[in-house]
Amino acid sequence: MQLAQRAAGISPSPTLAIDAQAKAMKAKGVKVINFSAGEPDFGTPEHIKQAAIDALAAGFTRYTPVAGIPELRQAICASLAARGVTYEPADIVVSCGAKHSLYNAMQVLLNAGDEVILSAPYWVSYYEQVKLAGGVPVVVTTGPDTGFKLTPGLLEAAITPRTRLLILNSPCNPTGAVYSREELAALAEVIVARDLIVISDEIYAALLYDGLTHTSIASLAPEVKERTILIDGVSKTYAMTGWRIGYAAAPRPVAKAMTDLQSHSTSNPTSIAQKAAVAALTGSQEAVEMMRREFEQRRNRILAGLRELPGIECNQPGGAFYVFPYIGKLFGRKFRGRVLGNSTDVATALLNEFQVAVVPGVAFGAEPYLRLSYATSMDQIEAGLERLRAFVTELE
């Protein structure tokens, strides 16, 4: 049976594929250190789980409004107001995870041939979702010299008459880079002047370190907000990855189009998960701060450990829960008779020979790097660092 061209052109998510391989190895009794998954290892806070249990007991198991129940959309508005940006419930579309929200946004915004600027390193699904919507990904490479952040000059140089959209991600997956208010304001000048649309992926907004604060580009000015689709969700902040609740806050016509599209695909998100999300957003935030502090300690440890390894360099991430070490000095060296030529070679050797799961930088449009998630225990981090040291020491 012949597949549609758009299906044949899809590349599977490398992060999920590596995570699945690592979990399959664990299921067979292999002691894998899994640095591949962007998934908090904490349990969902009890009051959030209880809200779902209460919803079940109350029989809240039927269809809901496509864009989400009113109390959840109102809770999202209140949460965003704390970021300095005001929305009404009609501007909010709740979907089956932030990834689903991103997909919906690109489907309703892009026409065939529209160009979308991606700042590399970029999250793996942006590229594929742009292609699925008929768009053309335009990759702008950034590096340690700019803190892995897009600059106004780089943005301006990438714009063509076909440019439609820019995707921003702060804090960033995979680098942990955080844009300051001043940096966003400088980008916004170009965005407004060139009449671009911005998708602002803010899923890691609550996970910031070193006293950094989050700025949403939509909060800068009305003319910026009217060009912005803000994406967020409860997965990372509240350890609710499997609950699948994300949302978009968008100009009213875009929100309506996304709702209409969703009505013909998934309909509403899961009813009881929506009730749990209300509890997450409106209840105590103590668990969020506890997790944030723990992630910061883990970041400090894995960063220090990586920097001690010969041939590895690493920028300090300001948010999210990833490190993105430079491994270019390992290329050309031999591991058990085989020359390491790229990040995939390194990641494959680490998984197969040392049972350490990492994601090669090429998945994020960036050689020569690896992505390691520190959303795992300190014991696992220590064990993983020991195995990484053994690998690097063995290189010829």
Rank of each mutant, 00 (worst) to 15 (best):
Y369V: 09
Q21Y: 03
I76A: 03
A239I: 02
R387T: 04
I33G: 01
A239H: 03
A375L: 05
N169S: 12
A366Q: 14
A177N: 06
R83S: 04
A280F: 02
Q129C: 04
R62L: 10
A205E: 06
E88N: 04
S13M: 09
A8V: 10
E183M: 12
L196M: 10
L212Y: 11
T151N: 01
T175Q: 08
T160P: 05
S11G: 07
P171Q: 05
E308A: 15
E128Y: 05
I302V: 15
A193N: 13
V346D: 04
G311T: 11
V392K: 08
L187Y: 01
Q50Y: 00
E223N: 10
L3N: 07
H264G: 11
T228I: 01
Y179W: 06
G361Q: 09
R336V: 09
F148R: 05
T215D: 03
P325R: 10
L16S: 13
V190I: 15
E202F: 06
V85T: 07
S343W: 03
A52H: 01
I203D: 04
Q297K: 14
G176A: 12
S343E: 06
L102P: 00
V124M: 10
T228G: 03
S263V: 05
I167S: 03
Y63R: 13
L187G: 07
I327K: 08
I231P: 00
Y204P: 02
V254L: 08
H264Q: 09
D195C: 05
V94A: 01
A55R: 01
L16V: 13
E88I: 01
S219Q: 03
R83K: 11
G29S: 07
D201A: 08
K49V: 06
E182S: 12
Y322E: 15
I217H: 02
I76E: 03
A27M: 06
A221Y: 05
Y326N: 14
P317N: 11
D195F: 00
V66A: 01
A75C: 03
